[in-house]
Amino acid sequence: MPNSDLLPSLLFKINENQLALEAAIMELTLWVEQRGATEVGGNVRGALETIDKNEEFIKMTLAVLMTPE
């Protein structure tokens, strides 16, 4: 398998890791907010919005890269 064939799989796994981290951070955010730190929670949610905004583009691009020629 050429190295170029590994790139889409690598990017897919990196994206999976990113989404798992997003989920874990959101769990911590909920925990923090329940304890009254709503400003911190809001800041974290704002930062996580970037992941949400980019997710559709990442999925579409990975689908194109993983499509056999």
Results as ranks from 00 to 15, higher is better:
51 I>G: 04
33 E>Q: 07
38 T>C: 13
34 Q>A: 13
59 K>W: 04
46 G>S: 07
17 N>L: 14
17 N>W: 07
37 A>E: 04
19 L>F: 05
2 P>D: 15
42 G>L: 13
28 L>T: 00
62 L>N: 10
7 L>G: 04
41 G>P: 00
55 E>F: 07
20 A>L: 15
11 L>E: 10
5 D>P: 00
25 I>Y: 01
41 G>T: 02
48 L>I: 01
17 N>V: 12
36 G>V: 02
53 K>D: 15
32 V>R: 09
31 W>T: 06
60 M>I: 02
22 E>D: 11
23 A>M: 05
12 F>M: 08
29 T>I: 06
35 R>Q: 15
37 A>S: 10
18 Q>M: 14
48 L>G: 03
56 E>V: 04
4 S>I: 02
20 A>N: 13
46 G>V: 01
19 L>W: 03
16 E>A: 13
9 S>T: 09
29 T>E: 02
9 S>E: 10
4 S>P: 00
57 F>L: 13
50 T>Q: 09
34 Q>N: 14
56 E>R: 08
37 A>T: 01
16 E>K: 06
24 A>S: 10
41 G>D: 01
46 G>Y: 04
3 N>E: 10
26 M>D: 12
59 K>M: 14
4 S>F: 03
5 D>Q: 12
5 D>Y: 01
47 A>S: 12
44 V>K: 08
40 V>M: 13
65 L>P: 00
7 L>T: 09
33 E>L: 06
59 K>I: 11
39 E>M: 11
19 L>A: 10
55 E>I: 05
9 S>L: 15
44 V>Y: 02
10 L>T: 03
17 N>K: 11
29 T>M: 06
42 G>T: 13
28 L>Q: 14
69 E>D: 12
23 A>I: 00
54 N>A: 13
14 I>N: 08
35 R>I: 10
48 L>P: 03
20 A>V: 09
31 W>Y: 15
53 K>V: 08
64 V>M: 15
14 I>Q: 14
14 I>P: 00
65 L>R: 06
28 L>V: 01
61 T>E: 15
69 E>R: 01
3 N>P: 02
37 A>P: 00
55 E>R: 12
13 K>W: 03
25 I>C: 07
69 E>K: 05
58 I>L: 09
2 P>C: 12
20 A>I: 05
58 I>Q: 05
4 S>D: 14
16 E>Y: 02
57 F>I: 10
60 M>A: 15
12 F>S: 08
8 P>A: 13
25 I>R: 01
37 A>I: 00
49 E>M: 11
30 L>I: 04
61 T>R: 05
55 E>H: 02
41 G>V: 04
42 G>D: 12
53 K>G: 07
2 P>G: 12
21 L>F: 06
44 V>I: 15
58 I>K: 03
33 E>D: 06
40 V>N: 11
5 D>I: 02
28 L>Y: 04
8 P>H: 09
69 E>Q: 07
6 L>P: 00
36 G>H: 02
33 E>C: 14
69 E>F: 07
13 K>A: 10
34 Q>C: 07
62 L>P: 02
45 R>F: 01
63 A>M: 09
7 L>P: 00
32 V>H: 03
40 V>R: 07
68 P>V: 09
31 W>K: 04
4 S>C: 04
52 D>Y: 11
60 M>D: 15
6 L>C: 12
47 A>Q: 13
65 L>G: 02
43 N>T: 06
32 V>W: 06
22 E>H: 13
5 D>H: 03
4 S>N: 12
20 A>E: 15
5 D>A: 11
8 P>V: 03
